[in-house]
Structure formats: C-alpha cells, structure tokens
C-alpha cells in the first residue's frame, strides 16, 4: 500500500453507534468533518499552507461555539459558515493587491463548494482506488510531492531532475488521477 491512506468512512456511520453524550457527539462530528472543512477553505484560498492556517483558526472558533451547535442539524454547513467567516477575515488581513482572486470569485466558489460537497466527498473515495492504480514510479513521485513540506520545486531539487520536467510529470499524474476519478464516478452513477 502507499502512504496515501484515504479513509472510506461514509456519512451516517455514527448512526449505528450507541448514543453518546452531546460532547462526544460533537467531537465525533468535528473529527469526521475536518478534511471537508479544510477542502472547503482550500477552494477559496488555494494555497494549502494558508488554508491550513485558516482551518486552525476556524477550529478554535468551532470549539468555542460548541454550545451553540444543535445536534441533529447539518454540522458541515454550520462549520463551513464559520470557516467562511475566517476566510473573509484572512482576506481582510491580507493586502488587497495580494489577493489572487476577487471577492466575487470567492463567493461563487464557496457557494458551489457547499452545493457539491457530497459529490466531492464521493470523488475523494474513488481517489483511493485511483492512487492504487498508478504506476509505482508515478505514485512515488506524487507521494514525494505531497509529503511533509515538499513542493514540486523541492522535489525536483531532491531527485535532481530539471524542474520543468517534474512539473510536467506532476501535471500528467494529476490529470490521470482526475480522469480516473471521473470514470469511477460515472461507473457508479450508471449501474
């Protein structure tokens, strides 16, 4: 197996769990939706490091507002609302001319991301399958690219390949993965 371990827990899995106290319930939801909140933020702030930072800020607020969350309502929507606010705060802190994208773009993307949340989650599960189908060399490269603190640039340095050729390989691999996920998703949609 590769280092990419994509968990395949499905929504509603906790329904079969014995009833726990509200705090335990909250912790479970909190943990379960960590990744999806992160992805929601990343769609608006495409740099993973910045997105992670905003995510941490959002986590603090989410914890603090624990009391105000009503169990049984949509946790992801609630958490994304908080995350969205943190994204806005982040953008306010940042100088305007450093914004990559306009406010309008960010708004649009955020609302799309919420709409498509479940669909994207499905795709994420297919990704696990697709990764295992990659050629070993490709999987190794993508793994290096995303392992602690690396970027395409540092991977190129690390393995002594020209940087452009690494960018090309990464691009090819990501496209392959995207294609593969598309196929998997379609296959599932048409039984």
């Amino acid at each position: 197996m590769s280092e990419f371990r994509i968990s395949t827990e499905i929504d509603g899995a906790e329904a079969t769990m014995p009833a726990a106290g509200p705090r335990e319930e909250f912790i479970k939801l909190f943990t379960k939706y960590q990744r999806r909140v992160f992805l929601f933020i990343l769609s608006q702030v495409p740099n993973p490091v910045d997105a992670e930072e905003i995510h941490q800020e959002a986590n603090v607020i989410i914890w603090r507002k624990f009391d105000r969350f009503e169990l049984g309502t949509n946790f992801l929507a609630w958490a994304c609302q908080i995350a969205n606010y943190e994204v806005l705060k982040y953008r306010e802190r940042q100088r305007r001319d450093r914004h990559l994208f306009s406010d309008e773009f960010v708004r649009q993307v955020a609302s799309d991301a919420i709409e498509q949340a479940d669909e994207l989650e499905q795709r994420r599960q297919h990704l696990a399958v697709c990764l295992s189908k990659l050629r070993n060399k490709d999987r190794e490269l993508i793994q290096q690219r995303y392992s602690a603190g690396e970027s395409g640039k540092s991977v190129a340095e690390l393995i002594g390949r020209p940087i452009n050729s690494v960018y090309q390989s990464l691009s090819r691999i990501r496209r392959t993965l995207l294609e593969c996920v598309n196929r998997q998703t379609q296959a599932q949609a048409t039984p």
Binding site: F4, L39, S43, V109, L120, Y146, S147
Partner: peptide
Amino acid sequence: LEYLSLHGTLYWDAA
C-alpha cells in the same frame, strides 16, 4: 472544485 479537491486531498492525506 474537482481539481482543488484532488489537490487538497493529496495534501491532507500525505502531508
């Protein structure tokens, strides 16, 4: 969104 979600998932799972 699909691209960013792919990118983010790889980052999240491998970071």
